[in-house]
C-alpha cells in the first residue's frame, strides 16, 4: 500500500513536467498549426545551457536560472523569425521533417558541445525526504516539482486568460485571418507563443534533468509530452493539464508492476501504447475537438 502511494506521488511529480512541456507545443500548435517535433530537444538544450552556466561558468544558481530562461526566450524568437516564417502553409510532411531534422541538428550540436556522457545536473533542492504518517515518503525534489509546476501552470493560466496578449493568442488560435482583421498583429502573437513555449521548455529542462541527469536521450521526454498532448487532445489545455499527471502515474505504476514480467523498460513504452489505443478509439484525443472536414 505504501508503495503504491509512493509510486503515485512520484508519477504525479513527473507527469506535471509532461504537462509543462506539452503546454509549450500545444500553444504553438493552436496558434500556427505546427506541431513542433523538436520540443524535446529544445528542453534538453536548455538543460545543457543551464549546466554550462552553473557548473562550467560558476554563475550563482538564481541568476543562472534566469539566464537559462532568457536563453530559452531568445531561442524561441530566433526559431520563429528564421524558420517558422517559411513553414506556414507548407505540406505537413515538410513541417514534420523540418522540425525533426532541426532536432537532429541540435542533437549533433549538443553532442559536439557537451559530449555523450551523462552529466549530473547541479543540485537545485536539498536532498532528503519527509515521511507522512509512515505511509508516504516524499523527497524534497519531488515536492518542489509539484509545487513549481503547479505554480507555473497557474501563472500561465492567469496570463492566458486574463491578459490582453493571452486574449490575442486565443483569438489567433481560433481564426488567424479574423484575428488579423480586428487589428491583432498575428506575427507578434506567433513570436510571443514561441517564446513562451521555449521558456516552458527551459523550465521543464531545468527541472527534469535535476533527477534524470543531463543526457541527449532525455530529449525523448518531448515525445512523451507529445503523447500526453495527443491523448489529452491537441487543442485542449485543461485536457493536457489533467492527462500529464495521469500519464505520469500510469507510467510509474506500470514500471513497478509490469517490469518484472517483461524484464524492464515499460516506463518508456507505456505512453506510446496508451497513445496508440486512444488514437484508435478517440482520434481527436480524450478532450480534443472533433475535427469536421468538408470536401
Amino acid at each position: 500500500m505504501e508503495n503504491i502511494l509512493n509510486y503515485i506521488i512520484a508519477g504525479l511529480a513527473n507527469g506535471c513536467i509532461y504537462s509543462l512541456v506539452a503546454i509549450g507545443f500545444v500553444l504553438i500548435y493552436k496558434s500556427s498549426g505546427i506541431l513542433n517535433f523538436a520540443q524535446g530537444t529544445i528542453v534538453i538544450l536548455n538543460a545543457f545551457v543551464f549546466y554550462s552556466f552553473t557548473i562550467q561558468l560558476g554563475i550563482p544558481m538564481v541568476i543562472a536560472i534566469l539566464l537559462t530562461l532568457a536563453f530559452g526566450a531568445l531561442l524561441g524568437f530566433v526559431i520563429e523569425r528564421f524558420i517558422l516564417d517559411r513553414l506556414i502553409g507548407q505540406p505537413i510532411l515538410a513541417v514534420i521533417i523540418l522540425t525533426l531534422a532541426f532536432s537532429e541538428f541540435l542533437k549533433g550540436i549538443m553532442n559536439l558541445g557537451w559530449g555523450t556522457d551523462i552529466l549530473s545536473a547541479p543540485q537545485l533542492f536539498p536532498r532528503g525526504n519527509i515521511t507522512i504518517l509512515n505511509i508516504v515518503t516524499l523527497d524534497y525534489s519531488r515536492i518542489a516539482f509539484l509545487v513549481i509546476t503547479f505554480f507555473l501552470i497557474i501563472i500561465f493560466a492567469i496570463f492566458y486568460n486574463k491578459t490582453k496578449i493571452g486574449l490575442a493568442m486565443k483569438a489567433t488560435s481560433d481564426d488567424t485571418i479574423a484575428a488579423g482583421s480586428v487589428g491583432i498583429r498575428v506575427r507578434r502573437v506567433f513570436v510571443v507563443t514561441w517564446i513562451i513555449s521555449c521558456i516552458t521548455a527551459a523550465a521543464g529542462g531545468i527541472l527534469v534533468t535535476n533527477v534524470m541527469g543531463i543526457h541527449i536521450q532525455v530529449a525523448e521526454i518531448g515525445f512523451k509530452a507529445m503523447a500526453v498532448a495527443l491523448v489529452g487532445g491537441l487543442q485542449s489545455l485543461p485536457g493536457i493539464i489533467i492527462i500529464g499527471p495521469a500519464m505520469g502515474i500510469i507510467e510509474f505504476l506500470s514500471a513497478a508492476y509490469l517490469d518484472p514480467l517483461v524484464d524492464g523498460g515499460m516506463r518508456d513504452l507505456v505512453p506510446f501504447i496508451i497513445l496508440l489505443i486512444v488514437l484508435i478509439f478517440r482520434p481527436s484525443g480524450i478532450f480534443g475537438w472533433k475535427h469536421i472536414e468538408r470536401i
Partner: peptide, 9 residues
C-alpha cells in the same frame, strides 16, 4: 548529423 540536419532544414 549536423551536416545532414542543416542541409535538410
Amino acid at each position: 548529423i549536423i551536416f545532414v540536419g542543416l542541409v535538410l532544414v
